[in-house]
Design a protein around this nucleic acid. Sequence first.
DNA 1: CTTACTTTTTGATATAGGTCAAAGGAAAAT
DNA 2: ATTTTCCTTTGACCTATATCAAAAAGTAAG
Lengths: 188, 188
Amino acid sequence: MITDFLINFVPFSHDELNDILPYFKKEKVKKNEVLIKEGQVCSKLYFVDQGIGRSYYLKKDGKEVTQWFFGVNNFMSSVDSFFQQSPSFYYLEVLEDSILYSITKKNMDALLAKYHNMETFIRLLTIDTLAKFVHKLNAIQFQTAKERYTYMLAEFPDISHRVPLGHIASYLGITQETLSRIRKNDSH
Amino acid sequence: MITDFLINFVPFSHDELNDILPYFKKEKVKKNEVLIKEGQVCSKLYFVDQGIGRSYYLKKDGKEVTQWFFGVNNFMSSVDSFFQQSPSFYYLEVLEDSILYSITKKNMDALLAKYHNMETFIRLLTIDTLAKFVHKLNAIQFQTAKERYTYMLAEFPDISHRVPLGHIASYLGITQETLSRIRKNDSH
DNA sequence: CTTACTTTTTGATATAGGTCAAAGGAAAAT
DNA sequence: ATTTTCCTTTGACCTATATCAAAAAGTAAG
């Protein structure tokens, strides 16, 4: 639940939660639905209640590159686009029928201005996100294809077998043929 | 100046600035001095007034990998270690005689609790940092060695010719021999 | 069920960039 | 100034992973 996620970072009061939570609107989204396209400004921040999301972009040759996966109980968005209101470099889509809770930038700004705790929450959330990106960067920068896949399994244990192999391969910066061969060898 | 940097993100009042600025202590640091070692908890956030810093870690084989460069007018730290008070994965050092302004975690926490604007500042700073990391990740993940160097020149124009080539190479995830060859060809 | 479409696997071949080794240059120390 | 240390360049060779192509397996649709 989104409440648990919030209070896990910051001790919001009951009154604060009662004011904040209604701004998150429930959205049911069908598999493969695209939430944001490249170039659009991301106007909502999503919380994944059920399902899986991913962000990706297209290389010049048209190939998709997955940038991130968003599992249950995670916020999903094109972070910099949402907070900086700049055109998104990424597409955002769901990979399964999903239930999301979304809040608009406008409402988020109001909450940030109103509640010091909300600022703290977003600060901590961003630092957490930053730490995850740093972790991925380390995995990608100097590890072999096999080690990268090991990182993937650790970072996204619940996701690694529910999404197409090609999405994972591009997330890891390797080809799907290579990943297929890694999986084959892994299963002894 | 640090003041300009602050008000560029958030419209701090004069009173706020007068309270905040004295917590930043000037430090003169000699070339190659190490500020944080791997495993230590980063207790200070630094602002680079003069000089260059870098963060790096050691691979199992003992080779250094540069994670980031910190130029003039940038905050420098092992971000997640400082804010999450977790052991740093990185070393932090300066590559030239430098002048830094540092604030302790304790004082920063006090300012974050006292001033809503300070929370906002750190939130925006973190989002900015996150955006830069994402940018690097994109460069590293799917670009050739030469394209990565182009990214480096764009991201750190003032730094690219003041630090050892080996530091840049490891930052980009390539070997120094390869980078040397790229530079040779660049100068036609 | 059968057909069409998507995803994964397998094989053969190519290549960017790594590794190893050694020489040249530059900078710092005595 | 001369020596020592560090940094950069160059050359020869090698390997992990990409690319290309096609078969096989899995999933969805009529």
